[in-house]
Design a protein around this nucleic acid. Structure first.
Lengths: 145, 145
DNA sequence: GCCTATCATCTGCATCCGCATATCATCTGT
DNA sequence: ACAGATGATATGCGGATGCAGATGATAGGC
């Protein structure tokens, strides 16, 4: 029952392989991993501050600035000064940003579907459900137990 | 059906959180992640060359040397010159190496069990089976499709 | 015996990362 | 009005990483 390879020993190389597989897809769309993460996070809901964005995608708030500059320069996001608090730059996706996000994500999905096709329907279902559950946990909960 | 977060977007942060959670456990045993990987790999089967080891655990063959030096200095592994080919250093775990590996792994398992306890039995089963399947794939297979 | 390939090792380079610090603008509570 | 907190930004440090040589020892094919 408990005889299994370490979780991390299976997950980490898998994560690395996934990223290696998907990075070329993103590059075709002119995106880095961080840039793609930003587009994904902003699509779910607009964020009011850059610090909140960094927090949401697990990025360093100082390192993320360059990526935001890039995305803004390419017209994929907007940084609007918040009239209610002029320190804050409200972040939002442009129509073009949404388009690029959708087309990049479609490419990613195609790759991932071909991977998931190797699993039995039950395993696939359990895998995805478990992954959602675990990915939703705050890191402290994982560290704590 | 296909409406789900990107695999990589769930797996990568999870992998990161797992590592953050487990690193302190390894450090209690005086091990780094790479060192622990080495112990795990050598326990499964002794490897004849260091290049093969590096390949097996996805490490850089030049960067791994320092970790091997450390492990050898601590008496956890042995690097024996191969009489049949004196260029080669045959790698093996010492009894102490096995002991440290076991006790570190027990700590890791405890943490991981507490995490897996959050899953339903079916999801847990599917998750682990899927993980084994996917982790067994060579990276090229993941990249290729 | 000689040429080429292989193994372990060292070194240097460019990159990325998390983190800490500092600056400037601006907001908020008193 | 003033002090302290907060947001965006720039910068530098230390560590880790992938990668590309270069070297010395040794094997193996011819």
């Amino acid at each position: 029952m408990t005889d299994r390879p370490d979780l991390a020993a299976m997950i980490s190389p898998l994560s690395r392989a996934l990223i290696d597989a998907e990075l070329p897809v993103l590059h075709e769309h002119g995106l880095s991993m961080w840039a793609y993460s930003v587009l994904l996070a902003l699509d779910e809901r607009p964020l009011r501050t850059q610090a909140a964005l960094a927090e949401a995608i697990g990025a360093d708030k100082t390192r993320i600035i360059g990526y935001l500059d890039d995305l803004q320069r390419k017209g994929l996001i907007e940084r609007t000064p918040d009239p209610a608090d002029r320190r804050v730059r409200v972040l939002s996706l442009t129509a073009e940003g949404r388009r690029v996000r959708d087309s990049a994500q479609a490419g990613i999905r195609r790759k991932e579907e071909r991977l998931l096709a190797r699993l039995s329907p039950e395993d696939r279902r359990g895998f995805l459900r478990a992954l959602r559950t675990l990915a939703a946990l705050p890191p402290e909960e994982i560290a704590g137990a």
